[in-house]
Design a protein around this nucleic acid. Structure first.
Lengths: 187, 187
DNA sequence: GTCTATAGAGGGATAGAC
DNA sequence: GTCTATCCCTCTATAGAC
């Protein structure tokens, strides 16, 4: 499983060969099929896990009735940046595979509730009735997630080395909430 | 070529079969190879084009010495949202393929200059010497581009239909520059 | 459970007729 | 230039020995 996670998330479903996974795991190709029956079945296991990891954390943070908007944003930002730092391929992998087979993976249970029913979205609506809450959500998530999606470009351009970029990303745990506040209070 | 653009950008290199392209083009598989020699060569042509489209527009806008920071952001936002609306697969396609073969495609000529030498980055540094300019750039690009990357998830969750989401994206041509100003003036 | 060997399908590429 | 037919390699999956 660990080998499958690594290879699938890095190369994507179509470009992954089961041989690569077997090799990475230090076992035989036949054995891999003995355990998981097929490439597709193994992938589905990985994908389910990754979707859960990627989307699962948002809901409880944004639906906490005991925190302010600002606290929610701060918690969300720190949580996401820490999580994705563990595996920088996660966002682009998940979002790209969903795009490839939306009918199969696009049905993320909680997204609907996230956007319609969350305490956070209610708070946004009260604070800024003039702007659709989803516009704020998209911007905040964009500020958090996009830098990881752009990471291959930045790294390869030689602008910042991996360590410098890592520092910059950590710094964003402060910056994004500050900016989000400025956006919310903007007139 | 038009068929190749369509199929490659939608399915990605690995998942694309040359047969699909031939069919989409209404021609024979043999003929496709006659024209382009190989799948890889054809893909390289498409990829070069798409990288140019995706990155090519930024530099002139951000390096214009005659516009203010705010004007640059406004122009950039409108330009990008209009461009990507033409082909919503563009960002995730380009960024994912670069991730797949960074050695081959990751060397985007102007990214380095974009980040170090642009007039825009100078202006940011003067206006906000306390924050690294790249942090602003990443946030602005994230606010512009991320909604398109998340589009398959939104669409499939049934939250907004395609038309509603399109409206929301257009509305962002005003919102993003407003928010960016708020971020720049935040204390 | 774990291996070697191989079946079987899919897909990129070419031969060769027209 | 354009087609049909086909080659041949790669990759998934399984048979079968141990």
């Amino acid at each position: 499983m660990e080998a499958a996670r690594k290879v699938f998330t890095h190369k994507g479903y179509a470009a992954t060969r089961t041989r690569d996974i077997a090799e990475e795991a230090g076992i035989n190709l036949a054995l891999l099929n003995y355990y998981f029956r097929s490439k597709k079945k193994l992938f589905d296991l990985v994908m389910e896990e990754k979707i859960h990891t990627f989307f699962g954390g948002i809901f409880p943070i944004l639906d906490n009735p005991n925190t302010s908007v600002e606290e929610k944003i701060e918690t969300l930002t720190a949580f996401y940046i820490d999580m994705i730092s563990q595996n920088t391929d996660l966002p682009i992998f998940v979002l790209n595979e969903i795009r490839s087979r939306p009918a199969e993976f696009g049905n993320i249970g909680k997204v609907r509730e996230l956007i319609f029913k969350t305490h956070f979205m209610q708070q946004l609506k009260e604070k800024r009735p003039d702007v659709e809450p989803i516009q704020f959500l998209l911007s905040i998530l964009g500020m958090i997630i996009f830098p990881f999606i752009a990471l291959p470009v930045i790294e390869n351009s030689g602008v910042l080395d991996k360590e410098k970029y890592r520092e910059a990303l950590m710094k964003r745990k402060e910056l994004v909430p500050q900016w989000a506040s400025a956006m919310l209070n903007e007139t």
